[in-house]
């Protein structure tokens, strides 16, 4: 079986004032058909940039190398026309901020329908019909009325439903959801996660869920990748990761998830220190400065991602058992 998406040795560098800043370093990952992969990391860990590179959405000052295969096709460095025939139809993305991610002066219906007009060659009236049915599928109440409204007339949750519906119009093989709930109220967050779960069961596409919040990813992902300072530091099944994290960074992150049961804490646990800045030249393990298990070897030799058994992998010299 071929993975839906295979990223190999991906590097993303930004040039800023003649200096190159590495945002993504040697990242490799696969997303299999029907699978939901959670990508977790702090801001600046490069998790979003990996998928910006996949979608061809990197800023103009970015240099990218490596390989991105979507199905059988290499899509990194593909010409714009060919890329445009893939993204938006078979490979789609949901963005973090639904308030600003829809075009303010176009009606919701038009923004949905244009995807079908563009990719499926539908007539506008057929596309509008299909768009309305999609709004009903993503549980937007009064779909017909919403079609003729502008984005600012919709609540944040509804707008994110519109974004999700937009991503599903052409039966995608892979949907990338970049922090889809971060800009929303907690109660709405739960609804959107629930919707993504339902849609996945219904459509059966692969889903990448990017989040800084392990708790958001926990309920949905089959497999979780943890990123730190532009690299994947741990990869494991969701169940395995929550049972026993192998990388100290993941273990520390898990400790930071507040729990409703258990003793009341005076302070929420936090991770000490700062992640390395993007421009820093790193020798050894990027997490060494914050790691409770740090040893001399960690500061001089960078640990490679290695097999940890049961499909798990971690980049650590002294992983947790």
């Amino acid at each position: 079986m071929l993975p839906t998406l295979r990223v190999e040795n991906l590097n993303v560098n930004f040039t800023q004032r003649a200096a190159a800043i590495a945002a993504v370093r040697q990242v490799s990952l696969s997303v299999w058909p029907g699978e939901c992969v959670g990508v977790v990391g702090e801001s600046g860990s490069g998790k979003t940039q990996v998928f910006m590179a996949v979608m061809g959405l990197l800023a103009g000052n970015a240099a990218v190398d490596g390989s991105v295969r979507f199905g059988e096709e290499e899509i990194l460095g593909l010409d714009r026309e060919r890329l445009n025939s893939i993204r938006g139809s078979k490979l789609t993305m949901i963005f973090q901020d639904p308030m600003t991610s829809l075009t303010p002066h176009l009606k919701v219906g038009e923004q949905l329908a244009e995807v079908l007009v563009c990719h499926a060659g539908m007539s506008w009236s057929a596309a509008r019909d299909a768009a309305r049915r999609m709004l009903e599928r993503v549980r937007v109440p009064e779909a017909q009325r919403r079609m003729n409204q502008y984005p600012h007339e919709l609540s944040g949750g509804l707008r994110q439903r519109v974004m999700i519906g937009m991503s599903l119009l052409c039966d995608p093989a892979l949907v990338v959801a970049d922090e889809p709930t971060t800009a929303l109220d907690v109660t709405v967050q739960a609804q959107i996660i629930e919707l993504l779960r339902a849609v996945r069961a219904e459509v059966g596409m692969s889903l990448v869920l990017i989040s800084h919040d392990l708790a958001v990813v926990a309920g949905l992902a089959d497999r979780i990748l943890v990123m730190y300072a532009g690299r994947v530091v741990e990869s494991a099944s969701a169940a395995g990761l929550f049972r026993q994290a192998r990388h100290p960074y993941t273990a520390e992150l898990l400790k930071c998830i507040p729990s409703l049961s258990g003793p009341r804490l005076e302070r929420l646990p936090t991770l000490r220190g700062q992640p390395p800045r993007a421009g820093d030249e790193l020798v050894g393990c990027a997490f060494a400065a914050r790691c409770p298990r740090v040893a001399e070897r960690c500061r001089v030799e960078r640990p490679l991602l290695r097999d940890g058994g049961e499909g798990a992998a971690m980049a650590c010299h002294y992983p947790l058992p």
Binding site: L83, T92, T100, T103, L106, C118
Partner: peptide, 26 residues
């Protein structure tokens, strides 16, 4: 540079549509 143009690019819209329908009016 706005988010909604990024969305429009991610939708795979041709450049003409992108400029005329999404970018020109604002």
């Amino acid at each position: 540079r706005s988010n909604y143009i990024r969305t429009a690019v991610a939708k795979g819209l041709p450049r003409r549509t992108l400029l005329l329908r999404h970018a020109l009016r604002p």
